[in-house]
Design a binder for these strands. Structure first.
Lengths: 338, 338
DNA sequence: CATGAATCTGTTCTCGCTAACAGGTTTCCG
DNA sequence: CGGAAACCTGTTAGCGAGAACAGATTCATG
């Protein structure tokens, strides 16, 4: 049973101070690990803290220090694997540094929703802002806010005015396409995500550049919207039938694509190889198990937090750091039959 | 460009008050919509607020009112569709009521992690606590904390001492099994989730009771761990081959199950019907498109928030409210061939 | 044993806001 | 036109911490 000194209320440092026979500042110093405290005094204070189950008020602390120890995260489409995993990773990295996280989810990402989200987070009181997976159309907004608030954008392209971090989408895309080329494919199509997304654009460019550098002809290009539904429509439409392999910009579109192909009698990978991007937990149970590119979100979370803390501490040089992705080979890719 | 009155700092109500030629309390009253303010004064204050881009400090407000306008959510396994969707729905419902949300994710749910999570959330300063999808082993902990903090547990079983809300898992399970019975199946197996989860247990019981009430023999029972992997292993093992239909406790296990069946030459739905639970966004693109039970998380979020606000306002009667699920029929189920 | 330096500890003020009370205006009505 | 009841506004005192300064110990050293 927690023991409060005044009727029923949670104890404050003043209550602890009275119980330990010291001033409230001594309690504060003990709490903050100040060096110049006599060992016996510290022990007495700690005992009082323990006895009355004191916990410090992060609210009062925030008011006094003007540091909330909270990071705001604006996350677009958190139902999707990538953004959600990134958010979880940031949360867990933040917790390890005694920071907490407030997330604001947007799905319909118009400028108004974004600035409302930023305003909401700022109003809550945050020390830094992290924006996950934005579309390029929104860059302006972040710039405007970054002057007041340390901001990190999770994307794989550098930006002169912003701190950025991400998984190297471009490299991952080249790895995927290189894998297909290595298996002997020469007609390699791409199903891209919406090209106003940084990630979609980087994966598209990686596909294009890897083909070009291998001396292969331009492949067929189609655009989806990240959903399995859009992949399905493209697969069912038949526009990609000339290609022997397809690099889909994410696993969900790859899933839909395979669905569409199979429905029209094209076998995967016998007639057409499909490679995805993300390595969803279920990707190994797709039919056939999906070859894909894995992103290390845990590493990304730690990286993001390191950069955010540096930004909070006033490091103003715009950084840009990348995590290397990893190719996961399963059964949805093989050599071409013709 | 935001206009601060003192050097570079964010303006406070005192700055606004000076600009408007009133006392800081008048500003506070305008901000809080206090009725007895002369219209001309209110206008002057609002104009000053607008001009200097004042925003109130939620920190100071929280300290003065001892209300943080923040709800803590302890969410288990947020990588999974259900818990994640529930969390998003609560966030969005909370925002609509001017509350913000702090989430604490647990995956390895031992007692220690849970109480650490609760302690973390409480330390952040929250007005109420919401626990999503717990396992029954953890009930004790919530009871202990509910005395100090208004608490709502998201689960479908009532509890004498706690506020609870959820989607009616039991009813959903009976709907799923009734659908299979309606198609003529008599040997209906169940792949359950871990039975220390409330939802897994309710779905299991719904399956059992529906069979019994239809006068059918007991079906085969197998236990998975929510993952597609576990479903795959059960499908590939062959233990369920005597059954003509399987009710899987979630879509992911259904996916793995189908994978396992197909690998051993059993066709779905020709040889065996499979029905899932959740209606993942991609479930309609599984091969074959999955028949399943949909949960309305948006409604659940609104419900949860309504109950939480009631609890904050001191409503102490333990409530228990349920949302009705919905059957989604696709192509993974059909009548038995034999 | 004096005396300055190094350690420890306490007082007061501040962070930005609301609660509670008090004082000053109107307004209304006899 | 006087007085009470509305209405509007201001003053002061917290909320629970930390910052800054100042004072009180201890300690070492000549």
């Amino acid at each position: 049973m927690p023991e409060a000194t005044r009727g029923g209320q949670k104890p404050s440092i003043y209550d602890v101070a009275r119980a330990a026979g010291v001033s409230h500042m001594t309690v504060s110093r003990v709490l903050n690990g100040h060096p110049n405290i006599r060992e016996s005094t510290r022990a007495r204070v700690l005992q009082a803290i323990d006895e009355m189950q004191y916990t410090r008020s992060s609210i009062a602390r925030a008011l006094a220090t003007s540091r909330t120890m909270r990071i705001g995260v604006l996350v677009d489409s958190p139902v999707q694997w990538g953004p959600n995993s990134t958010l979880r990773a940031i949360e867990s990295a933040a917790r390890a540094q005694h920071y907490s996280v407030s997330a604001f989810a947007t799905s319909d990402e118009d400028a108004e929703t974004i600035s409302a989200g930023i305003a909401d987070l700022v109003a809550q009181g945050i020390d830094a802002l992290c924006v996950i997976a934005p579309r390029s159309s929104a860059s302006e907004l972040f710039r405007e806010h970054s002057s007041n608030m340390p901001t990190l954008v999770i994307k794989s392209e550098p930006d002169a005015h912003l701190h950025t971090a991400g998984v190297d989408q471009y490299a991952g895309a080249r790895m995927a396409v290189a894998h297909l080329i290595g298996q002997g494919h020469r007609e390699i199509a791409h199903v891209a995500g919406p090209l106003d997304w940084y990630d979609a654009r980087a994966r598209w460019q990686g596909w294009r550049d890897e083909l070009r550098d291998a001396g292969l002809p331009e492949g067929r290009f189609a655009q989806g919207d990240w959903t399995a539904e859009s992949g399905y429509r493209l697969g069912a439409a038949g526009d990609l039938d000339r290609s022997t392999a397809v690099f889909a910009a994410n696993d969900q579109m790859a899933l839909g694509l395979i669905h569409g192909f199979v429905e029209r009698g094209r076998r995967v990978p016998a007639d057409v190889s499909v490679i995805g991007f993300d390595d969803l937990p279920d990707a190994r149970h797709f039919l056939p198990p999906l070859t894909t590119v894995r992103q290390d979100f845990t590493a990304l979370g730690s990286l993001a937090l390191r950069l955010l803390l540096a930004a909070i501490d006033g490091d103003d040089t715009a950084t840009h750091e990348l995590i290397a992705p990893e190719l996961i080979v399963r059964s949805s890719t093989s050599g071409p039959s013709r």
